[in-house]
Design a protein around this nucleic acid. Structure first.
Lengths: 124, 124
DNA sequence: AAACAACGACTACAAATGTAATCGAGAGAG
DNA sequence: CTCTCTCGATTACATTTGTAGTCGTTGTTT
């Protein structure tokens, strides 16, 4: 369980596509992002290479083309990102962070009920 | 309300001290951090300068010495950081992020009750 | 007065990041 | 068989970040 290098902002965009569609080719990623991003194709290819180098992606080659897959699950990477955010901004203090989020953001009644249910589960 | 430049990881450490003790001198920050950090004094001074350049800190000079103060409150900066984290990792989806945090982290019964209370407040 | 200590300014430099262009090798078109 | 297209590899380059050293000035100590 050695340290994964950090996934940068731009790299997260790529990873989201890969998690959704893996195994995916660079062309897949490029097409998927074409609408939301102004990146040049080469930029996306560079990001894919870096993710390979960092060991965050693997690939399987079929006739000249790489099919990229994530090494870790989206959940695992999100977990690491949550930890790092919690530590950096709140010094690891979970409750104050949650209070801020809960107080400041909008939630539907249904969402609120779901969250309350999760809290009740934990309490047991 | 123009964009503040991002506050880097190392800079957050400095900012936490400033928010706690502002106005603070570089010596104040250095002394405060001496126990937790292995940074050389000059490293801290560099970070303070960068925070000034970025407009995240201001200063008032009294006899050769700068007294640094934050431009924005800790709450405001944390808010921005929460938004950026939520956007980057969860594409802005609040509830899934909360569910992850709630399910995965430890909370005391008392904290759980407090959170439930906040949720009930919101529901009204 | 001379030496020194401390401050902010300036300089240094490697690694990471954002953003992309170019290059060599095959795959397909004609 | 030659031309073009595409793919990953390599190269490019400015900015940000982590981490610190040096320099000129001024306040302090001997």
């Amino acid at each position: 369980m050695d340290e994964q290098p950090r996934i940068s902002d731009a790299e997260w965009e790529i990873m989201k596509v890969i998690w959704a569609k893996s195994p995916a080719t660079s062309a897949d990623v490029i097409h998927t992002l074409r609408d939301n991003k102004t990146w040049k194709d080469n930029t996306i290819k560079t990001l894919l290479s870096r993710l390979l180098q960092k060991g965050i992606l693997t690939y399987e080659q079929v006739n000249r083309v790489y099919y990229y897959s994530p090494v870790l699950t989206e959940e695992e990477c999100k977990r690491q990102e949550r930890q790092s955010f919690l530590q950096r901004v709140y010094g690891g203090a979970l409750k104050p962070m949650l209070v801020h989020f809960l107080k400041e953001e909008k939630l539907s009644s249904q969402e609120i009920d779901e969250l309350k249910k999760i809290l009740s589960e934990k309490e047991k």
